[in-house]
Design a protein around this nucleic acid. Sequence first.
DNA 1: TTACCAACAACAACCGTTTGCGCAACTGAT
DNA 2: ATCAGTTGCGCAAACGGTTGTTGTTGGTAA
Lengths: 341, 341
Amino acid sequence: MKRTTIKDIAQQLGINPSTVSRALKDHPDIGLALRTEIKKLAHQLHYRPNHMAVYLRQRSSRLIGLIIPEVTMFFYPSVIKGIQNVLHDAGYNLIMLPSNESLEREIENIQICSENDVAGIMLAFSRYRHTTEHLSALEDIGAPVVMFDKIIEGLPYDAVVLEDFQSAYTAVKHLIDTGCTRIAGIFGNPDLRITQLRLDGFRQAITDAGLEYNEDYVCFSDSSYQAEKDARTLMEKPIPPDGIFAMTDEIIIGSLPAIVRSGKKVPEECAIICISDGFLPYCLYPKVTFLHHDGYQVGRLAAEKMLQLIEIGQNSSEDKKSEVLMLKPPLIELDTTRKLV
Amino acid sequence: MKRTTIKDIAQQLGINPSTVSRALKDHPDIGLALRTEIKKLAHQLHYRPNHMAVYLRQRSSRLIGLIIPEVTMFFYPSVIKGIQNVLHDAGYNLIMLPSNESLEREIENIQICSENDVAGIMLAFSRYRHTTEHLSALEDIGAPVVMFDKIIEGLPYDAVVLEDFQSAYTAVKHLIDTGCTRIAGIFGNPDLRITQLRLDGFRQAITDAGLEYNEDYVCFSDSSYQAEKDARTLMEKPIPPDGIFAMTDEIIIGSLPAIVRSGKKVPEECAIICISDGFLPYCLYPKVTFLHHDGYQVGRLAAEKMLQLIEIGQNSSEDKKSEVLMLKPPLIELDTTRKLV
DNA sequence: TTACCAACAACAACCGTTTGCGCAACTGAT
DNA sequence: ATCAGTTGCGCAAACGGTTGTTGTTGGTAA
């Protein structure tokens, strides 16, 4: 029942644990004959190294802390998959630390990373109004940090994000180019940086086109259900919008049914575009034109960045030059926007 | 930069590390005066215990391995949330081990659990054709195991599952009770136990009602996209079904648009019911009647079971009596089924 | 005065693994 | 025969904490 250790192997062979340790990692100091014998026995006894002990000794774990606001069905599953695929191949494991959108929990999660001596922290912030004071704890840990998607600006950490402003701009411009003139936007929590940037892009595209920016056509929906209500309200206005920009998957899945129920013909009377992870738009009815914000890719890139940081962190000295990687999402035209002629 | 350790504190105070250790956990052997002084300094130096070291010494980690087939947007996010909420409060952390629906990876994940000396393993199996041979590795680890949802029968581990047969039966019976006579079923991967059980319940409900069970009305869709195609095919039949049972969220989100596109009036010409985690049915158009298979609850229960097992595992001897907890999902009637009169 | 007992703190072993160092035995060149 | 240079392995300390045991006080009861 007890796990077999290096000592067990050493004892059975009447040799020293250190010899076993070296043999198992093909240290040339150990003779080939003994080496193979040790390996054979290790295999027989189902020997598996105890990572805890290794971590302790070498002061470097192979655990990565993943701190995200919440485990929702949107975006994060793809991100996790991307991260996981990269990290696994590099021999790292992920410890999941959802913050439940709470600042205290986020701090606690950082502590947990510290206690578990993680090799690195991947971080998407919760939607409290951002202050960076509590993040000094991140410094103390000394482990590299990579932020993604829900980031805080001005932090000395690398990040992988969407071109938020540009994406919203492109989306709205596409609506305008295909004939929309009264464009509404349904956004997420206004405290988030991505919301602000997408809102800015939204507004800029409208004013650049010489259209009037109407605050009544803008709403902030903290959930799919709220988005549904907000969309309904929009469609019930005396002059409803003829184009709608939805900021995320969470928003579009809530608002689309409300738009459809309003009876307006899509896209003729009301066109729709959103920013999406790329799965839902094909499943919804009608299929929604979207900018592909690929969570899987975000995860992969963030994880790769993480591995790089761990690599250089071990060798060279500190030359922190935080780098923000911006992804440009491609436009995928489906059924909810009119065609250019 | 270096983490402060117990030794650092001891040194600064000119006392022994063991004294510090005891003081920090309020051992009565240490005088109150010294105890508070130690705690104060520990706080000042941002002391955080090194879990690795503690694990090593006490041979019991506070890590739980979570092995799931894949991080999809369906079901698992809720489950993870449930598990996480329970485990976090008990001071445990989750290490995420998706198997990518691969047997080899699943085995590897079990190994990783072993290497990291997890305190327990929570397990949902991938959809390979089930063999249990490779699971001997689970025994070796000695840590308690709890299975959920995608389980393999006959294993000596506790489990939390849906009343699969009964749920499908209830769903289909509801369709029949509200007037459907030609009922189709869209299922997931046929290798899964849940698929087989739900299929059995589906069939039983139909034959119990004296209706004819028609294989042409049954399809197995391994993805949402496949479900979309399969639903389309169903609706294009010379005599299309007038009632459809979708086994999961993944199935319903794929098939619903196809059904709607077919032009049939829902629910008058074609009623729909599914088993769902409870979020999507409200977002879809039309809102889908469903049996609420609450992933969050599954996660909570499985995690609580896990904690119990860890508890008793430490104290008492081995009295393995594996217990399967069956959840009965409530029926939530929305827009896709006719009302009983 | 002696005996005894708290109270308090130090000592040291230990968890499993790694790793610098030392040392014996062997090799081959002188 | 001598010496330098391998080769092959053991010894012991270390990583950070925990814990059983021991030892030193000072106080109290006999």
